[in-house]
Amino acid sequence: MSKEHDRGMTISVKPGTRLTVGLIFLFGIYIILHGHLTPGGGFAGGVIVALSFINLDLAFGGEVSARIFAKGSTSVVEAFGGIMFLALALLGLQWGGFFDNFLHPDGEPGMLISAGIIPLENIAISLKVGAGLFAIFLTLIALQKFESEKK
């Protein structure tokens, strides 16, 4: 057995995670993009996307996400989400007011591409929440690793 297999959980968890993690991720994306049509939206979708990454880390050990993300990139993504949300709100000042819905103000019920800036704001929120939640998880496991090394 290579060292790769010693990390993370047992053999029965890993194939299950491999199968489901993509679906969880896609479901998160779906919730984000349909935020203006169905219950859910940026926050719920962002949490689900973050959970898919947390699942990976739990099943395969803490180093998997380090291969996908550079260190500290979560805070950058989070800040970018915040800036995007704020920029959309401030752009509204140009047309009428803070948070003014300047694209398609009326929209069509049930259509995916409608509702103006609301889907864009959902995407911004999901970036912020997803990155933020994942950063919290990473911080907590980093602290735990730090503790166990000290002993």
Binding site: I136, T139, L140, L143, Q144, F146, E147, K150
Partner: peptide
């Protein structure tokens, strides 16, 4: 709060 608790434990 949990992050604080972990640090306090440390």
């Amino acid at each position: 709060l949990i992050a604080l608790a972990v640090r306090l434990y440390g």
